[in-house]
Write a protein that binds this DNA or RNA. Structure first.
Lengths: 156, 156
DNA sequence: TCTTGTCTTGTTATGTTATAACGTTCATTC
DNA sequence: GAATGAACGTTATAACATAACAAGACAAGA
């Protein structure tokens, strides 16, 4: 089924936070992973923000909530969430976003509005890269697909 | 004509350096841009390296050659070269590579070997992103397409 | 010619992002 | 209850990047 990119359109935000948390809980329970308080809170922060946040911004929130206030605290929680697909890193922004499709094993692509900073997660459907890689014998393990431009609301 | 990705295969390296420099010279002459000594040398360094280099590595080389040794010296030269398409930035690596197709106005894609660090430039042929963007009303201005994996020489 | 403006380079200083390395705690296992 | 391993916190530092200012080169126009 076609996936409608979210991020630029309004939606049931409380619902999508709850959904994101539940997906993470279920996944961790199923796989025996520890969704500890820092990790849980980190994911909540990103889900609530519903936009890309730098690690230090996340860290500031965490420390407000009584967690440590040193960089590794945030980076480790983010790494855990990223490793298991609950959070994606946006290379272009050196920032992190909560995954819009938790649970699905996917290769995300992003659209980044250079005006308002919002980020929408989309679907990657085999780019020319795949063909190019095959041709040259390169084995792809991960891809970074990020488009920068103007979202519908920021166009003149 | 199909573009064969370079970077993982052997080739006439001296030739490609000369070709890269000539392309930049011609382009700058045509457009009235100043290919000053630092800028020229920066491009040479990247062409010779024939792989991604961090700004500080470039800077170290520049300062060996008698140019300034403060970060802005390198970042400015790199920005100029990037603006005019002689150099690309690899977001994933926070690094820069000389363009493999100088002169062509293109939207590059890269394959990055996580083992040897080599980077090959490839061609982007409309990813799923284009469709997704149109659907959501997003206007793409620039794209970052980077694949990480293993190059032919680094596979077991 | 002089002056004005633009472009380039260099500097100082600082800001931002990220990780290595070590100690402590706590739950689990033997 | 000792050993193990995972998570968290800390200190310290590394790596990447830019703002803001001064000085020189050079061309255009008064």
């Amino acid at each position: 089924m076609p996936y409608k990119p979210t991020g630029f359109s309004s939606h049931d935000h409380d619902g999508c936070i709850a959904q994101g948390m539940q997906a993470a809980e279920a996944f961790c329970a199923a796989k025996g992973l520890q969704l500890t308080p820092v990790r849980r809170r980190t994911l909540e922060i990103l889900l609530q923000a519903h936009e890309a946040m730098g690690a230090y911004d996340v860290l500031a929130r965490l420390s407000q909530d009584g967690f440590g206030d040193k960089p590794p605290v945030a980076y480790r929680a983010l790494a855990f969430l990223q490793d298991h697909g609950f959070v994606h890193r946006i290379e272009r922004l050196n920032a992190f976003v909560a995954c819009a499709r938790p649970g699905a094993d996917h290769d995300p692509a992003f659209m980044i509005c250079r005006s308002c900073g919002k980020v929408a997660e989309s679907e990657l459907s085999g780019s020319g890269l795949t063909a190019s890689a095959r041709e040259s014998g390169f084995v792809i393990e991960q891809t970074v697909i990020e488009a920068e431009g103007l979202c519908p609301g920021c166009q003149p």
